[in-house]
Design a protein around this nucleic acid. Structure first.
Lengths: 190, 190
DNA sequence: GTCTATAAACTGATAGAC
DNA sequence: GTCTATCAGTTTATAGAC
């Protein structure tokens, strides 16, 4: 059990930081090598290509999402609290001044290898399905008021959070996601 | 009055297509030169740098937005119709399988020269201000029901449209923006 | 206005030594 | 696992001829 992570994990962590701040096409093996402190050639030992690195990044991100959602489901007792926890993942990212890894990849989708595009779609589908289930449950118990179809509301929240995260860094004013959160939740008030 | 546009306009048109499909960092002068049919060196006669080209792109885009919004205000008689027309600009872009120029730049903001970042902010501020005014007017006449502060709703719509446009290309299912539109408008139903 | 020629730096990637 | 050395191709940009 070592304090410092192994090189592969360090590479994933540094790459995630670069992708969520600069974008997949705007960072290079050189950038990555400098952060981790090895040579660019050594990166190829861990990830045979930049595309495979991107794919590994999205796979880890999606499995972390799965863990977080399972935690929310198990730990929290109201659908409102679960929704708040979900939104909280994105407000945390906003505070760091970064994008969601998936949102960053989605914005580069026109230039990405198919392997990554598939992972992006899986992540988004999972988010929408979880939010939709949360809404359906909350409407059934009377916790939420149904103003639109849950599937539409779920897609709308995911789009608002991802868009908000991308636009937040360009905005002068107050935290953008706080506004997205408020208008979404007030709309559901029973 | 010639049928074919001048080279500068052709360059702007081709660059806009590339930025909204691939992103600012994912297209090169070589790509642009091939589309327009000149050499890369000739591009520098019209735009001294890629940054200046990007800035010119955003300036033209913002002034086109201004024209479109003025047209909506003048031509359309209800706030609902105006909001629909605004949303329509984005559903048109979704049909083309492209991103909004501003959304594309926003996603690359961490790597962009400051001149472009300022233009991105101006475009977003203008969108939010116009939508907010539209909502305030519609609430005053009783056309809309106010579920949240107009400023929050406006920010939320802009974020939802931009996010929806970016995510739409990764999604398998039905048009994402139609869902954003439905849940936003139903929320306003008086 | 557009061209050729050229630059200097960077890109992801490979071969092979240690 | 990480290194050095190297590759072929690309990037934005400049100088100067036409």
């Amino acid at each position: 059990m070592s304090t410092t992570s192994d090189t592969k994990t360090q590479l994933l962590d540094a790459a995630q930081e670069l992708v969520t701040r600069r974008g997949f096409n705007a960072f290079s093996y050189k950038d990555l090598a400098e952060v981790v402190g090895i040579r660019t050639a050594s990166i190829h030992y861990h990830f045979e290509s930049k595309a495979k690195l991107g794919q590994a990044l999205m796979q880890r991100y999606t499995s972390e999402l799965e863990g977080a959602l399972a935690g929310f489901d198990q730990r929290l007792r109201s659908e409102k609290a679960r929704l708040e926890a979900f939104i909280g993942m994105y407000t945390d990212t906003e505070k760091r001044g970064a994008m969601c890894l998936c949102g960053s990849f989605a914005s580069d989708l026109g230039t990405l290898p198919g392997e990554i595009a598939d992972e992006v779609q899986a992540y988004l589908d999972r988010c929408e399905a979880w939010v939709k289930a949360c809404l359906v449950a909350g409407i059934a118990t009377g916790e939420f008021r149904a103003t639109s179809k849950p599937a539409d509301l779920a897609a709308s929240l995911v789009a608002g959070l991802q868009g908000g995260l991308i636009l937040a860094r360009a905005q002068s004013g107050s935290p953008l996601l706080a506004r997205v959160r408020r208008s979404f939740l007030q709309n559901l008030d029973a």
